[in-house]
Design a protein around this nucleic acid. Sequence first.
DNA 1: CGACTGCTTGAGTCTGCTCAATAAAGGTGG
DNA 2: CCACCTTTATTGAGCAGACTCAAGCAGTCG
Lengths: 237, 237
Amino acid sequence: MRVAATLPVTDRARIEGPDDAFDRLDAIGVIRHLAPHESLLLEGDCADRFHRVLSGTIAGYKATADGRRQIVAFFFPGDLVGLTVGDHYGYGAEAIGRASVCSILHTSMRELSRQTPALREDLLVALDREVAAAQERLMWLGRKTARERLACFLLECADRNGLPGKDGRKTVPLPMSQLDIGDYLGLASETVSRALAQLARDGAIEILRPFAGVVIRDRRRLETTMDEGAHPNGAGM
Amino acid sequence: MRVAATLPVTDRARIEGPDDAFDRLDAIGVIRHLAPHESLLLEGDCADRFHRVLSGTIAGYKATADGRRQIVAFFFPGDLVGLTVGDHYGYGAEAIGRASVCSILHTSMRELSRQTPALREDLLVALDREVAAAQERLMWLGRKTARERLACFLLECADRNGLPGKDGRKTVPLPMSQLDIGDYLGLASETVSRALAQLARDGAIEILRPFAGVVIRDRRRLETTMDEGAHPNGAGM
DNA sequence: CGACTGCTTGAGTCTGCTCAATAAAGGTGG
DNA sequence: CCACCTTTATTGAGCAGACTCAAGCAGTCG
């Protein structure tokens, strides 16, 4: 898990980071390359496989009939997309930019996990993490202001994909558009833009131009912004 | 899973509903009775056991330093509380009213699952359902209006705990307070009260007085309300 | 080098918030 | 059994955070 985001990836790219049994998945899967915005799977589709991200970023989303969209997760290299034991996917998924994945059929997976019991355990861990992540974000969406959500998001991204810099600074690549960030945080894209601008004005971050990420300039300040109080929607105090 | 909500429960109560391997858990667990608002586990505590709800309702929640609270799940009889493979709980949990649970140590669980491989599978299914539920609710909190969230919530409760009535009507017991519902839906309790009142005015539901649930009077109308459009926060169109 | 897409910024507005006061239940103890 | 206190639900008034709409500005790509 956890890699520098978008690296040129050869056909059999190795994901860096702590070795988990998932590395073995690459051997039984099929590589697929995705163009920007190309769909990987649709909500409600019959779930006969899942995908391991090799490069790029994948967005998992739910949509309503009238066009509203909620991104339920961003998947980075090493992450598993479309993991479920049900028979239908709970969310759709599409590539943010160019991306590549390794697709594993449930049937192949079952076979492999007979030989490698550790895989079952790791699957449990992966699902567990997904639960924790989703529940953490329920807190964001239900009880935090736009600024707080942004701060939480940036710190999460920093911890997952941040590139270390001098004296605690981190460059955080954000491959997704501000519209996508809004759909992830339950905000309008304009609100994302304004909140980012304000964090930059406050000296917490620096925005990379043209927009491609941020540099964390004052992590402490960002962390206090995560919980500064004020009130999610509506009114005064 | 799925039972009539609050029944007088004897020490070794049997949960109704489709037999799952979890019934076996009751044999290796310890019964515990909880008073209203009594805490079952704390967020961040060392996770050495989980709990199966026997009777009553349990709320799983996260809280910020400044007192904001987000309920991440309601647990009804048959549900598993505090299920994780990590070593710390991701949320706290407390009883809504009187409740009883069966507490299973991870060590006992491991032992039992060696004998009963089906348990491992069911655990996966349980976690998978938790993921799906949390992600569904991300959509509610991120992209739905107060009325829509309420409609979604009532229909979810109806499907889990609803008591069938004549011609499609269902009595839906709601053991939690409106404040709890608000903390579940990311709303103020006043907003819950107002949204319920409006649904009742529209003829979709009938509110049981004193507040203890609702009767679904027009399910079709509730279902269209789930997605009626309009816009989550803020402004006009 | 246009046409697009994505980001920024401004103006105005609505949803859901806070604060506040009242009413209705529930629990407790005399 | 009733008075009292606490907790929960209702309803009103007013406010503000985040929305929509709209215009303007880069960058990017064909």
